[in-house]
């Protein structure tokens, strides 16, 4: 519960950046996430200087795109990860990244607090499930996300506990199925 409270606090901080251009809330997000983004980028092959530069850009993007964040669809950690990943593709691989089309049901209503809370809880449980994996399996998953495993290597890796991962976050799926009806 305490960990979910922390996640809901991030959600509130992003909302404060969006609604009030709240610099203090941004500073808190920055202090927590920037060093982790930097570490993630270095593990993905960026030099310390490039990772520093890029982590700053990721946080600037968070400020500029705060209005696009939806806490019923993603945890703040997930959202920041996707920004960092796209930046990495841009900078390290110099490739364009095709993104899926936005869902066709137009501007969404303010998400229900309960939905957002549920998603944050699920993500927290996912994090705990990952932490509880045997070291070898966790290492494999990390390598996949640091970009060290190709698609065929991921496919060949029978040790990846994908079932465990996928059973953890069902809320997003349920929600989408609901909305599509």
């Amino acid at each position: 519960a305490e960990a979910t409270t922390k996640r809901m606090a991030w959600v509130t901080q992003v909302a404060a950046v969006r609604d009030a251009k709240d610099k203090a809330a941004f500073a808190e997000l920055f202090a927590y996430f920037a060093p982790r983004v930097k570490s993630f980028l270095m593990k993905s092959g960026a030099s310390p200087d490039l990772a520093e530069e890029c982590a700053q850009e990721v946080m600037v993007t968070l400020w500029n795109k705060a209005h696009l964040f939806d806490p019923a669809k993603a945890s703040v950690s997930t959202w920041i990860f996707t920004i960092a990943r796209n930046r990495r593709i841009d900078l390290l691989r110099k490739q364009k990244r095709p993104e899926p089309e936005d869902l066709p049901w137009g501007p969404e209503a303010e998400p229900e607090q309960a939905e957002a809370m549920g998603l944050q809880q699920e993500t927290e449980q996912l994090g705990q499930a990952l932490a509880a994996l045997p070291a070898e399996q966790r290492k494999l998953i990390e390598r996949a996300y640091f970009g060290e495993l190709s698609h065929s290597e991921i496919a060949a890796e029978t040790g990846l506990p994908l079932g465990t991962i996928k059973s953890r976050i069902r809320l997003a799926l349920e929600r989408l199925r609901h909305t599509m009806k």
Binding site: A27, F30, A31, A34, P35, R36, V37, K38, S39, F40, M42, K43, P48, A51, E52, A55, Q56, K73, A74, S75, S77, T78, W79, I80, F81, T82, A84, R85, P100, E122, T123, L126, G127, L130, A131, I141, E142, Y145, F146, I165, K166, R168, I169, A172, L173, L176, R177
Partner: peptide, 27 residues
Amino acid sequence: AALAEFEAVGGEVMLDADPVDMAEDAL
């Protein structure tokens, strides 16, 4: 929806990475 799950895994892997100090004037 399945992609949302796999991206959530990426977020948790990133959170778990040992933080590396940013430059002093980064913020």
